[in-house]
Amino acid sequence: MAQKERLSAYDQSMYDLMNRSEGAALHSTAARRRAVVGVHVALTAGFVGAWLGTVVGELSWAGWVMLGLLLPWCVATGILNSATRGLLELRPRVLDERQRAERDRARATAHRIMSWVLLGAVVVTGVVGFAGLTAKALVFQVAVCALVLHWLLPLWVAALAARDEPDADE
């Protein structure tokens, strides 16, 4: 941890939380981290779909789906944060030089992917518009999906890029 003496109580508690070792076995290998990211992507897609179902589709049962997905989503998010040691949750002053470099790399990769996704969305909506179809009804849904992707993509990228724990010493 960098600059330990200057950390606030909040920073210290967040650092301790992100470095807890109870769930280490869940993200100890690259295959497990990929699996957790896959589950997290699926849960996020389900949650966003259910939320849009309640807000736009006015489907009352979708609210129960949201509630059902909330706890597993929180657990999966916790595992990803543990795998990255809070790379995207902790403040920069809590991270050391290697962690700050890794965070910047994850954000840069996520930004690049997001740029391609947005380009794809522009092309698709352009083609749909030229074809004479109207996609105005989907603007809100697409915007929500883009927002969620923009928010969570760095976490997924960082978790996929995380390396195995160094062998135990002593």
Partner: peptide
């Protein structure tokens, strides 16, 4: 230990391992 060295130089113990 990695932990002791990491604390002494102000980095995460994983950084020493890497």
């Amino acid at each position: 230990s990695r932990q002791r060295l990491a604390e002494a130089v102000g980095v995460h113990y994983q950084t020493i391992g890497y």
